[in-house]
Simulated assay, not measured.
Amino acid sequence: MTDTPRRRGAARTEELLQVTLDLAAEVGYAGLSIEAVARRAGVGKHTIYRRWPSMSALLLDALSRVWTSDLDYRDTGDVRADLREQFLRSGLALSSPPIGPVYRAVIAEAQADSMLRATLHERFLVTVEQRTLDRITRAQQTGELTAKANLEFAAEVLCGTLYYRSLLSTRPIDEDAVDGLLDMFMAAYGTSH
């Protein structure tokens, strides 16, 4: 019997995260509030505050819910193809609802909130860079990339280019952009077989 309330609590948490994403896609960050989420979900504000101390914490959890699985790389044995697939998938996620508008809003809010910026960095950016670094390091170990290269900066540049385009530029993250980025990466770090 003790599992029933826990399941209900987990289901309620999932519902609140989904309501937050739906509402964010409709009204943007400026229109979001704990009160608006509570109203849409048909719960009291205390139900939300028991789980999240602030709107930004709720948004970060909502983003995590939909984005975490999208950060995983496939490993087909072809690093260029795997990076291409991941970057195109990430580019689409960063430019469309629910992730795109919510992520841009959280980034904007983080500029004035150092704790939010640190949390965003720890929960998303470090994860994105680390998963990219892990994938290109495996490629280095199998001989697809030069053996002596330090790939940490390369992972940061690869990821940073996508974020720059999605957050600060009007240029798309499309096939041409991803292919151009990967052509430069492979020219610098690739090996001939």
Results as ranks from 00 to 15, higher is better:
1 M>Q: 13
2 T>W: 11
6 R>E: 15
7 R>I: 12
7 R>T: 08
13 T>Q: 15
13 T>A: 14
20 T>W: 02
22 D>R: 12
31 G>F: 08
31 G>E: 12
35 E>R: 14
35 E>S: 14
38 A>N: 11
38 A>G: 12
41 A>E: 09
45 K>T: 15
46 H>R: 14
48 I>C: 00
49 Y>Q: 14
52 W>N: 01
53 P>I: 07
58 L>W: 06
59 L>E: 10
61 D>F: 09
64 S>E: 15
64 S>I: 04
67 W>M: 03
67 W>S: 12
73 Y>C: 02
73 Y>H: 15
73 Y>W: 10
73 Y>P: 04
75 D>L: 00
77 G>T: 11
78 D>S: 08
80 R>N: 11
80 R>V: 13
83 L>C: 14
84 R>I: 06
84 R>Y: 07
86 Q>H: 15
87 F>E: 01
89 R>Y: 09
90 S>G: 00
90 S>W: 14
96 S>P: 00
96 S>L: 09
98 P>S: 00
99 I>F: 11
100 G>V: 08
100 G>T: 01
104 R>V: 12
104 R>E: 02
106 V>S: 07
106 V>R: 07
109 E>C: 04
111 Q>A: 07
115 M>W: 09
116 L>Y: 10
117 R>H: 13
122 E>G: 01
124 F>H: 13
124 F>V: 01
126 V>F: 06
126 V>L: 12
126 V>M: 02
127 T>M: 07
127 T>Y: 01
130 Q>K: 11
130 Q>W: 00
130 Q>A: 12
133 L>T: 04
136 I>K: 01
140 Q>R: 15
141 Q>C: 07
144 E>G: 06
144 E>L: 09
145 L>W: 00
147 A>F: 00
153 F>R: 12
154 A>H: 09
154 A>K: 08
155 A>E: 01
158 L>D: 00
163 Y>D: 08
164 Y>W: 10
164 Y>D: 10
167 L>K: 07
172 P>M: 07
172 P>V: 06
177 A>K: 05
179 D>A: 06
180 G>Q: 06
186 M>S: 02
188 A>F: 03
188 A>E: 08
191 T>Q: 14
193 H>T: 11
